[in-house]
């Protein structure tokens, strides 16, 4: 099984929704990964579309850099609608 690459599996549960990561599995190639993903991850109508991506092709952000990457968003409260006070007379916006 060492020869079988690891695939990450993404399933769209129904049209209108994103493909979502559900797990991973080993397969000889992408085609087999889709077949196995069907058997393993969609036995109860969980999906209508499958993406498989070989795990080695995914580039991920480094968790050690999380603070540098994501903290700057924290103090930008003016990006949220709740930052702006509206007059009481205004019913909807």
């Amino acid at each position: 099984m060492n020869d079988w690459p690891l695939y990450e599996i993404f399933i769209r549960s129904k049209n209108g929704l994103n493909h979502k990561h559900v797990g991973s599995l080993h397969a000889a190639d992408a085609h087999m990964a889709i077949q196995n993903a069907r058997d393993v991850y969609t036995r109860r109508n969980e999906g209508i579309s499958i993406w498989v991506v070989e795990a080695k092709n995914i580039t991920a952000s480094n968790p050690d850099e999380s603070e540098a990457l994501f903290d700057p968003a924290e103090d930008k409260i003016y990006r949220h609608p709740t930052f702006y006070k509206l007059p009481d007379a205004l019913k909807h916006m």
């Binding site: 099984m1 060492n2 690891l6 797990g23 991973s24 599995l25 080993h26 058997d39 393993v40 036995r43």
Partner: peptide, 22 residues
Amino acid sequence: QDEGGHGLYLYSATETLGINRD
């Protein structure tokens, strides 16, 4: 068949910790 699937989910989870299936 479900139990076989459960085995697979859990082997995959174990592999994320840096040990391979073999």
